[in-house]
């Protein structure tokens, strides 16, 4: 039994994959999630991912007037990470993630929740939208809606969710299987 709760938590922390060594792209240790390694897939993925991420940001911003929005944007962005995992395996996934999923989720929730709650501080109802007008050199007059922060929060959360799920149901399971296999071999005396 733990003598000091701070020193020995009842259970260890979250998955430690996030601290895994950051593998190099196309390095030899990369193992893909499905089937044999496909160089073509990896290369295509490598090229597509930045484009997908840019498209996701476009969707995020465009949602104001066209189909899109935080959800769609977030889903598209997470497709990029899924693709990276499918092509490069779990180490590759770990290398490509900007932060631990719980942190992404927490930040997203803070951003959205904060945007929702901020008007309360000014005596306005919850979620009241505020618009700022700017004059920017290149873009001219810009309307910045506080709803955008809200949407960014949504975007982050969707990305965080998909990352968690891929990490848990994809990478984690894969790792476990390897462990089991290794353990099984070790047991044979």
């Amino acid at each position: 039994m733990a003598q000091d709760d701070e020193r020995v938590p009842a259970v260890p922390g979250p998955p430690d994959d996030w601290e895994a060594p950051r593998e190099r792209w196309l390095s030899t240790v990369v193992r893909p999630a499905f089937g044999p390694r496909s160089m073509l897939l990896e290369v295509v993925a490598r090229m597509l991912i930045p484009a997908i991420l840019v498209f996701s940001v476009y969707l995020l911003v465009a949602g104001h007037n066209r189909p899109g929005g935080g959800f769609a944007g977030g889903l598209v962005a997470s497709m990029a990470f899924v693709l990276r995992y499918v092509a490069g395996g779990r180490y590759e996934l770990a290398a490509g993630i900007p932060a631990r999923p719980p942190v992404i989720l927490a930040l997203g929730l803070l951003l959205s929740g904060g945007t929702a709650g901020a008007p309360l501080l000014f005596g306005e109802p919850i979620l009241r939208t505020h618009t700022w007008h700017f004059e920017l050199p290149v873009f001219g007059e810009v309307h910045l809606l506080s709803a955008l922060f809200f949407e960014i929060g949504v975007y982050l959360i969707v990305v965080g969710l998909v990352l968690s799920v891929v990490a848990a149901l994809g990478a984690r399971m894969e790792a476990e299987e390897e462990e089991t296999r290794a353990w099984g071999e070790g047991e044979v005396r």
Partner: peptide, 22 residues
């Protein structure tokens, strides 16, 4: 937006739940 904020809370929770379960 109240619905949306509830909905993203669901997502956050589901993500945490999946991670902790696996």
């Amino acid at each position: 937006a109240m619905d949306t904020i509830g909905e993203i809370t669901v997502l956050v929770t589901a993500a945490v739940a999946v991670a902790s379960l696996v």
